[in-house]
Simulated scan of single mutants.
Amino acid sequence: MGPGAHRRSTVAVKEALRELRNQLSLLNHQVGAHLALKDVDLDCLELIARHGPLSPSALARRAGLHPATVTGILDRLQKGGWIVRERDPEAADRRSVTVRAVRGRNAELFRLYSGMNAALDELCAGYSEDELALIAGFLSRATSAGHTATGELAKG
């Protein structure tokens, strides 16, 4: 493959990633609308479910959001029964709070994402284990590149 063909393939991959990002954003928006949550609320709920329990400041760092913004998000998530705030018994400051996801609510999210999950299962069935490992590795490295780029932008 010559340099022109490689460049065209690279452009095609980047365009496909942008289209995927847009489609996933639309899907998340629809899921959020069904649950009366904002997109950013869903993003934070995902971070809490994956990495929690978290302090609100740790969540703010992970999400790249101002702590005051996170407070409003946590208020909405708690009001909806998605998270609980708990005193952190191991913290030096007795007022310290951690946030954790309410496990019983996951079924609602799984149901709303079930169409996409089923479609991905069907799609992955057409690839070999080696191909899936390559795809997973690429997506992981692309995520890491996005994390780095986000961090650089956040620095100003």
Results as ranks from 00 to 15, higher is better:
102 V>Q: 06
117 N>V: 08
67 P>W: 00
71 T>Q: 02
134 L>Y: 14
12 A>H: 05
108 E>L: 13
61 R>S: 05
116 M>H: 08
116 M>V: 08
62 R>E: 05
80 G>V: 08
76 R>G: 00
53 P>Q: 00
76 R>M: 00
7 R>M: 07
66 H>K: 01
49 A>E: 03
109 L>I: 14
108 E>R: 14
119 A>S: 14
98 T>Y: 15
123 L>A: 11
38 K>P: 04
152 E>W: 15
67 P>F: 00
109 L>H: 07
77 L>Y: 01
65 L>G: 00
10 T>K: 04
66 H>L: 02
9 S>C: 06
146 G>D: 12
64 G>T: 07
156 G>M: 05
134 L>C: 10
109 L>K: 07
25 S>D: 11
43 D>R: 08
52 G>Q: 02
77 L>A: 01
117 N>C: 06
119 A>E: 14
109 L>A: 09
45 L>I: 03
83 I>T: 03
59 L>D: 00
70 V>Y: 00
108 E>D: 15
75 D>F: 09
90 E>W: 12
39 D>L: 15
118 A>W: 06
37 L>E: 00
88 D>Q: 02
11 V>E: 12
29 H>I: 09
31 V>G: 03
70 V>W: 01
138 F>Y: 12
82 W>S: 01
114 S>V: 04
98 T>W: 15
138 F>R: 04
45 L>K: 04
88 D>Y: 02
90 E>G: 04
120 L>Q: 05
115 G>R: 11
147 H>Y: 14
13 V>P: 03
82 W>A: 00
80 G>R: 04
120 L>D: 08
103 R>S: 13
22 N>F: 15
104 G>C: 11
106 N>D: 15
41 D>A: 01
102 V>S: 09
48 I>S: 07
69 T>Y: 12
52 G>A: 01
23 Q>H: 10
143 T>M: 11
127 Y>M: 12
135 I>C: 04
132 L>Q: 11
23 Q>C: 06
98 T>C: 07
114 S>K: 07
88 D>G: 10
21 R>L: 13
139 L>R: 09
18 R>S: 13
15 E>N: 12
80 G>W: 07
75 D>L: 14
95 R>D: 02
86 E>S: 14
93 D>T: 05
123 L>T: 06
24 L>F: 13
123 L>H: 03
84 V>D: 15
135 I>V: 15
95 R>K: 11
143 T>A: 13
101 A>D: 04
125 A>M: 10
120 L>C: 12
142 A>Q: 12
95 R>L: 13
61 R>K: 02
97 V>A: 13
156 G>W: 02
61 R>D: 15
84 V>A: 08
145 A>R: 11
142 A>V: 13
65 L>R: 01
49 A>N: 03
124 C>Y: 11
74 L>V: 09
125 A>W: 11
33 A>G: 06
119 A>P: 04
143 T>R: 12
2 G>C: 05
92 A>C: 06
68 A>L: 13
130 D>T: 10
93 D>H: 05
19 E>S: 09
7 R>C: 08
131 E>Q: 15
121 D>L: 11
23 Q>S: 14
112 L>C: 13
91 A>Q: 04
110 F>T: 07
21 R>M: 07
38 K>E: 02
